[in-house]
Simulated assay, not measured.
Amino acid sequence: MLKKLKKENMGTSNLGWLESRFHFSFADYRNPNNINFGVLRVLNDDIIHPKSGFDTHPHQNMEIVSYVIDGEITHKDSMGNEETLKRGEVQYLSAGDGIYHSEHNLHESKDLRLLQIWIIPPATGLPRLYGSQRFTKEQRANKLLNIVSSKEKEAPIQLYQDVNFYVSELEKGKSLDFEIDKNRQVYFTQIEGSSIVNDIELNEGDAMEVTEERKLQIKALENSHFLFIEMKSE
Results as ranks from 00 to 15, higher is better:
residue 1 M to Y: 11
residue 2 L to F: 13
residue 2 L to G: 12
residue 6 K to M: 13
residue 6 K to F: 14
residue 6 K to D: 14
residue 8 E to Y: 09
residue 10 M to D: 07
residue 11 G to I: 01
residue 12 T to G: 11
residue 19 E to Q: 11
residue 20 S to Y: 10
residue 22 F to W: 08
residue 23 H to I: 04
residue 23 H to Y: 06
residue 25 S to V: 02
residue 25 S to T: 03
residue 26 F to G: 01
residue 27 A to M: 12
residue 33 N to I: 14
residue 34 N to P: 08
residue 35 I to C: 13
residue 36 N to D: 14
residue 37 F to T: 04
residue 38 G to T: 02
residue 39 V to C: 10
residue 39 V to Q: 11
residue 39 V to R: 11
residue 41 R to Y: 05
residue 42 V to W: 01
residue 43 L to N: 12
residue 43 L to D: 11
residue 45 D to V: 04
residue 46 D to K: 08
residue 46 D to R: 10
residue 48 I to W: 09
residue 49 H to C: 07
residue 50 P to N: 01
residue 53 G to D: 00
residue 54 F to N: 00
residue 55 D to P: 02
residue 57 H to I: 00
residue 61 N to I: 01
residue 62 M to F: 08
residue 65 V to R: 00
residue 65 V to A: 00
residue 65 V to H: 00
residue 74 T to Q: 10
residue 79 M to N: 04
residue 85 L to T: 00
residue 85 L to C: 01
residue 85 L to W: 03
residue 93 L to M: 15
residue 100 Y to R: 11
residue 101 H to T: 00
residue 104 H to P: 00
residue 105 N to K: 09
residue 108 E to P: 14
residue 110 K to C: 06
residue 112 L to M: 06
residue 115 L to D: 06
residue 116 Q to P: 01
residue 117 I to N: 04
residue 118 W to P: 00
residue 120 I to Q: 15
residue 120 I to F: 14
residue 120 I to A: 13
residue 121 P to S: 01
residue 122 P to H: 14
residue 124 T to G: 08
residue 125 G to F: 07
residue 125 G to L: 08
residue 125 G to E: 02
residue 126 L to I: 00
residue 126 L to M: 01
residue 127 P to N: 03
residue 128 R to Y: 06
residue 130 Y to M: 13
residue 130 Y to P: 05
residue 131 G to E: 03
residue 132 S to V: 12
residue 133 Q to M: 15
residue 135 F to E: 03
residue 137 K to R: 15
residue 142 N to M: 04
residue 146 N to T: 03
residue 148 V to Q: 07
residue 148 V to F: 07
residue 149 S to R: 13
residue 151 K to C: 00
residue 153 K to L: 12
residue 153 K to F: 09
residue 154 E to Q: 14
residue 159 L to M: 05
residue 160 Y to E: 04
residue 162 D to Y: 10
residue 163 V to S: 06
residue 165 F to M: 01
residue 166 Y to V: 01
residue 169 E to H: 13
residue 170 L to G: 09
residue 172 K to T: 12
residue 174 K to W: 05
residue 174 K to I: 03
residue 177 D to R: 14
residue 178 F to E: 15
residue 183 N to E: 15
residue 186 V to R: 10
residue 187 Y to T: 03
residue 189 T to D: 03
residue 189 T to P: 02
residue 189 T to W: 03
residue 189 T to K: 07
residue 189 T to N: 11
residue 190 Q to H: 08
residue 190 Q to W: 06
residue 191 I to G: 02
residue 191 I to A: 05
residue 196 I to E: 14
residue 196 I to W: 10
residue 198 N to F: 01
residue 198 N to S: 03
residue 199 D to R: 14
residue 199 D to W: 09
residue 200 I to M: 12
residue 204 E to I: 00
residue 204 E to A: 12
residue 206 D to A: 05
residue 208 M to L: 07
residue 208 M to I: 04
residue 210 V to K: 07
residue 211 T to W: 08
residue 211 T to Y: 09
residue 212 E to P: 04
residue 212 E to D: 15
residue 214 R to Q: 15
residue 214 R to S: 15
residue 217 Q to W: 06
residue 219 K to I: 11
residue 219 K to R: 15
residue 220 A to K: 09
residue 223 N to V: 04
residue 223 N to T: 12
residue 224 S to H: 05
residue 224 S to V: 02
residue 225 H to S: 10
residue 226 F to N: 06
residue 227 L to T: 02
residue 228 F to T: 03
residue 228 F to R: 03
residue 234 E to F: 11
residue 234 E to P: 08
